[in-house]
Amino acid sequence: MPVAAGLTAGVAVGVARTALLVAAARAIETHRPDALATDPLAEHFVRAAPASADWPVHPDQVPLGAADPLWGRLGRYFGLRTRALDDHLLDSVRTGVRQVVILGAGLDTRAFRLGWPPGCTVHEIDTGEVLAFKQEVLDRAGAAPVAVRRPLAVDLRDDWEQALLDSGFSPTAPTAWLAEGLLLYLPAGAERRLVATVDRLSAAGSTLAYEIKEVAESPGVRANPVYAAARERLGIDLLSLFDTRPRPDSAGELARRGWTVEVRRPYDFTVLHGRGPLPEPDDALAVNRWVFASTGSRPVR
C-alpha cells in the first residue's frame, strides 16, 4: 500500500527518485537464483511510492530478462555494486571498525540486512524527506536493525560535520565510510568538501568506498539504451542529474592526504564473482569506477 503523498514527495523527483530505481534493482537481484546480494526490504520501498508502485521487483516481471537494458543490464550493475560495497564494509568491521557512516544513504538497508558484529553503529545521512519516507516504510514492514542505527537528516551539499558529531559520531574511532552512487550528482565543490571532511574525521584504520565517473561520456555513450530506458520508462533522466562539470581528482587528493587508494572497474568484480554486466559498445558503465581507500595501516580491498 502506498504511503501518504506528503511522505512520498521526497523520493518522487530528482536525484532522490534514483533511490527507488536502485531499490527496484536490489529487489529483482534478491530473487535471482544467482543473486549477488539480497535485500528483502527493497521491494517494500518500491511498492510504497506511487511513482514506482508498478515497477518490477522480481526477474519474472522483466520479460526481456538479461537483455533488458534497464532491469537486466543496469539492474545487474546495481546488484554487483551492492555486493562489492557490502564486502567492503564487512571487511572493515572484521578488522575492528565499529562505526559506519553511509553518506547519501537513500533507501539503503545495510543496517538491517548485513551481519554486523555486536557494538556496530551505522549513521545514515540524507535529506529529511528521504529519511521520513524510509522510516515510514521500515515501520510498516516491522524491520529491526542489526546494528545501532542513527539516521541524520542533513543535506550533504551543506555543512554536515557538526551534525554528525552531535549525533554521537566519534572522530577518534576508526570509521568505514560509504558514498554509493552519490558523488555522481554532487557539485565539484561539495565533493571536495566531503573528501576533506571525511579525511579530517577519520582516525587511523578508517576506510572509504565511493563511485565516480572517471571521464565525461561521449555522445555515443549518452545515447546508450540504459539512459533512454530510464528516461522513457521511469521518468528518470540520469544524464540531466549527473554533474558534468570538470570533476575533482578525489582519489588523487586522498592519496596526497596519506590514504592508500585503489581504483577498480566494475567489470573487475564481474570477473571476481563470475556474474554481472559485461562490456558493450558505447558502454554507459565503462567510465564508472569504484574507489576503495584506507588510512593508517589497513589495507584496501
Results as ranks from 00 to 15, higher is better:
5 A>M: 04
9 A>E: 15
16 A>V: 05
17 R>Y: 04
17 R>I: 02
19 A>H: 15
22 V>I: 14
24 A>D: 04
27 A>Q: 02
28 I>N: 03
31 H>M: 00
31 H>A: 04
36 L>S: 00
40 P>Y: 02
41 L>G: 06
41 L>F: 13
44 H>G: 12
45 F>G: 03
49 A>H: 03
53 A>F: 02
54 D>A: 13
55 W>P: 11
57 V>G: 07
60 D>W: 02
61 Q>V: 00
63 P>W: 07
67 A>T: 09
67 A>E: 15
70 L>W: 14
74 L>V: 10
77 Y>Q: 12
79 G>V: 01
84 A>M: 10
87 D>L: 11
90 L>W: 02
91 D>C: 08
91 D>S: 13
97 V>P: 09
101 V>S: 05
102 I>H: 13
102 I>Q: 13
117 P>T: 01
117 P>I: 00
117 P>E: 00
117 P>V: 01
123 H>T: 03
124 E>H: 10
131 L>H: 11
140 R>D: 12
142 G>K: 10
143 A>G: 07
145 P>N: 02
147 A>K: 07
148 V>S: 13
152 L>A: 02
152 L>Y: 04
154 V>P: 08
159 D>N: 12
163 A>K: 12
164 L>D: 02
169 F>K: 08
172 T>F: 09
176 A>W: 03
179 A>K: 11
183 L>Q: 07
193 R>V: 07
194 L>H: 08
194 L>C: 13
196 A>S: 13
197 T>A: 15
199 D>L: 04
204 A>Q: 14
211 E>A: 06
214 E>L: 14
216 A>Y: 01
217 E>G: 07
219 P>C: 02
220 G>W: 05
221 V>H: 10
221 V>Q: 14
222 R>Y: 03
223 A>C: 09
224 N>S: 15
229 A>G: 07
230 A>F: 00
238 L>M: 15
239 L>Y: 11
241 L>R: 07
243 D>R: 13
244 T>I: 02
248 P>Y: 08
251 A>D: 14
254 L>F: 11
261 V>T: 08
264 R>W: 12
266 P>Y: 04
269 F>G: 07
270 T>W: 08
270 T>H: 02
271 V>Q: 13
272 L>I: 03
272 L>Q: 14
274 G>F: 01
275 R>H: 12
285 L>I: 00
286 A>K: 10
290 W>G: 12
290 W>D: 09
298 R>G: 11
